[in-house]
Nucleic acid binder design. Structure first.
Lengths: 362, 362
DNA sequence: TTGTATGCGTTATCAG
DNA sequence: CTGATAACGCATACAA
């Protein structure tokens, strides 16, 4: 068995020319059925696999989409990727995934590698640290469609998909207010990310709308479990009165806050009510009380981003000569929804507890 | 700005030949420093990115490793992939990830695509449903190194990395026995997977070793949350006495079991003790009580699999002529460790609870 | 209906 | 030190 079976091998075996084999393999109408059958038979026998590298070089398109995400271990990004693959595979595209681990250098290296491998498009969710955008320009300068999702980039003119970060946050805080919270804290993400600024704005506006006083000391940067625990610890230790509600920038923060509150003897939801963001049910339904959260459609986000790529590609192919025709970027906004669970509502918490302690009798 | 900048463009700009440019770019000793500087300057100006597709075709190696996993949303596989990337990138390899979604057809398609894109190696964790192995043979027939990890394939002669599935299971059950359990159930995975058979064997042997009676009705197939809930439900409803311990094939099953037990008014760990497998701390430390589990070094598994690939590659390159020299497959076994938490020990559960309810008074 | 020639971008070989 | 040439595997314009 040869290590590398090529079109030539099939051609030799049948005493025909490589071009005929090439055409036969892709069912070209010019080729006789007899030849096609013979070619396919030999191809199967030799376990021929077309060399995509050669095909890509020849056609100067790789049929590949590059995806850049911070970390795969985040359930959110893993779900987005599933959505991307869903659409991409159906459209005949392969997906190459790159992780940045929140490191800008890694982001640049990855994007450079994607350009080198001549991907047909790039779908990207930025690092927390990204403040310089030349690598994104580099993509666009080559006329490669670039789509941002979730962690989008305001400084680059590119299509993007986000969720209703502002609205979701607004409604989450509104919900806390409806539950009777007066002194509401926000555990926010890094200021560099638009999504966290949007969520912060939603918080501000909901507070203002209800004429609640905004205490800047209650707006605390905390975007993982550990920093959330520390934030709670500091709040409890401080002279100031405790908040009675916390809107967290993501579910992990909500988890950390809840764990720490519990360890420090503070009851959720009675004393402090909590709402997260994302609604990763592998977490939010696991705790006691369960965690209220703003649901984000991750899978759908991946699908939409990929569809936007396909649209953009079509647009570019429609004008093959014109390079870099500018366009006002389209921002697709996906719906969020506040899911109320025990962490923000005593009655619901009671119900959860009741359900948990319900001894079935047939 | 050109869409595609090539070596020729640089050559033209400097009035030198493409081959000189090629050599200058890779710092070939024959080329004068002056030329190198000039070339690099223009390359930077034009934002030249070497075409990896052309390079791959030319050198008939893609510097790419293909990775095939069931699902990215499983924290375990996401961690393994991080380990793979860690070693791969350092060795100058890119990583292409494919998801099968537990679908054999998808597995075959993905592997076919990887062969077509001429990956230099394949790291694979099989589907639950894989019972036919021609696609793996197809890889090996091309002399492409194939390494299995976690869900390995006994029927194919290939290097592989696993954890101490048998020992981990044995110790988990032994631990339950030490906690006083007499009637221990096992929620097992699909029989098609070697890992789940190994874990089952560990269960069997630990039970026999302690002269405990094995009730086949207590060995139940359940490998996700929902099936675990159903299994618990059925056990509670049955005429038979409840088990007092359950060894679960993974953490998700442990979570499902615990939730259902709680809802049905059965106390963990007092009435039923539980141990999971994997120790995904994003779960196991979240519940009340926390979940005891057999720790699996996922990141390390990825690292080792990649190192095995590199070794195998070296071996094959040392004998470039001989194709398919057979070799007794090497199976690397990584250490597991039982992590005891509240779900399997009342004292620990007390401590967790105490810690949770401890009102600090510093 | 099939064959021939050419080129995609790069690099190794050989020549100068 | 540099240049010309061929080849990697495939697809297509053109020829027959």
């Amino acid at each position: 068995m040869k290590t590398q079976v090529t079109i030539k091998d099939i051609a030799k075996a049948l005493n025909i020319s490589p071009s005929t084999v090439s055409r036969a393999l892709k069912d070209h109408p010019d080729i006789s059925q007899k030849t096609k059958d013979a070619v396919n038979k030999i191809a199967a026998e030799l376990d021929y696999h077309p060399n995509t590298i050669a095909q890509s070089l020849r056609k100067s398109r790789s049929n590949t989409i590059g995806v850049v995400v911070p970390e795969l271990v985040h359930h959110f990004f893993a779900s987005v990727i599933s959505g991307i693959e869903d659409i991409a595979y159906k459209a005949g595209y392969r997906v190459v995934i790159c992780q940045t681990n929140e490191d800008v250098t890694r982001e640049k290296i990855n994007i450079s590698a994607l350009i080198s491998s001549r991907v047909d498009g790039v779908l990207c969710s930025m690092t927390k640290e990204t403040k310089e955008y030349s690598h994104f320009k580099s993509i666009q300068n080559r006329n490669i469609p670039l789509i941002f999702f979730d962690r989008i980039c305001n400084e680059i003119k590119a299509d993007s998909v986000v969720v209703q970060d502002y609205e979701g946050a607004y409604e989450a805080v509104e919900h806390l207010i409806e539950q009777g919270c007066k002194r509401i804290a926000h555990f926010k993400g890094p200021d560099s990310l638009l999504i966290t600024r949007q969520r912060l704005n939603g918080y501000y506006d909901a507070m203002r709308e209800s004429h609640l006083q905004i205490d800047e000391d209650l707006i605390i940067q905390a975007d993982d479990r550990e920093s959330a625990r520390k934030a709670i610890y500091d709040l409890v230790k401080s002279e100031e009165p405790m908040p009675d509600g916390i809107f967290c920038v993501n579910d992990n923060v909500a988890v950390g806050a809840m764990m720490q509150l519990r360890e420090m003897g503070i009851n959720v939801p009675r004393e402090v009510k909590i709402v997260g963001f994302e609604d990763d049910t592998t977490f939010t339904r696991l705790t006691d009380p369960q965690i209220s959260s703003v649901f984000q459609p991750a899978f759908e986000m991946g699908q939409r981003a990929t569809e936007m790529f396909l649209d953009e590609l079509k647009r570019k192919e429609a004008h093959p000569e014109k390079i870099l025709e500018p366009k006002t970027p389209r921002i697709e906004v996906l719906k969020t929804k506040v899911v109320v669970r025990g962490s923000s509502n005593e009655q619901v918490a009671q119900q959860e507890r009741a359900r948990r302690n319900y001894l079935e009798n047939v």
